[in-house]
Design a protein around this nucleic acid. Sequence first.
DNA 1: ATTATTTGGTTTATAAAATAAACTTGTTTA
DNA 2: TAAACAAGTTTATTTTATAAACCAAATAAT
Lengths: 102, 102
Amino acid sequence: MFKPLDPLLHSELRLAVMSLLISVDEAEFPYIKQQTGATAGNLSVQLDKLATAGYIAIEKTFKGKKPCTLCRVTPVGLKAFEDYVAALRTYLNVKPDTTQQT
Amino acid sequence: MFKPLDPLLHSELRLAVMSLLISVDEAEFPYIKQQTGATAGNLSVQLDKLATAGYIAIEKTFKGKKPCTLCRVTPVGLKAFEDYVAALRTYLNVKPDTTQQT
DNA sequence: ATTATTTGGTTTATAAAATAAACTTGTTTA
DNA sequence: TAAACAAGTTTATTTTATAAACCAAATAAT
């Protein structure tokens, strides 16, 4: 009836990161931080978890003299995201709304 | 960009319970337990949280001589669920569901 | 009748997660 | 040269989720 939800994606910040990376294809740490509103520490931890799972690839480069952490989603990550959304739908499939609104 | 997700609903079991109660309108503890596959302890805790938030109403009655815990979703709970779904959509970057199945 | 089992839960303990605070390393800027 | 800043990481703390242990009443077995 209810499909289990991938715990790695069922997290507000990680889901936001994945959603963002899917839409932009690649993004730098400060940009992700700004878009998600996360603290650097929290973001660092969650990016690590996503990378460890193989859902994103993290490339550490330099931009001039500044370090630059570049992230992008992997095919595995994209698949996991799609599966997660499909699973989530089993929880959201509620009968059409009959209540009146403004 | 990403709307915050109500932490009370962003939980696999509580979301399943809400989804179930919305679809059936009212249900007894053992039925919810069976449908969600939760352990009794976990279910008891999560039902309490939902009730404390006013998302569900719990009525303790008797069915013959057996105690019977009856749950139903409240208008507040239904609204919260709808808001949660709307917020979730900001993460799924999928246009409002046109795909209708079966 | 007494003991064992089942039903319908609740309470408590523990493992896992999320999150922010504190810290590090190197770079500009005053 | 010292102070502030940028880009993160590491560590500590608080929450959460979850199951294990427990309880009370009813029913079934001996």
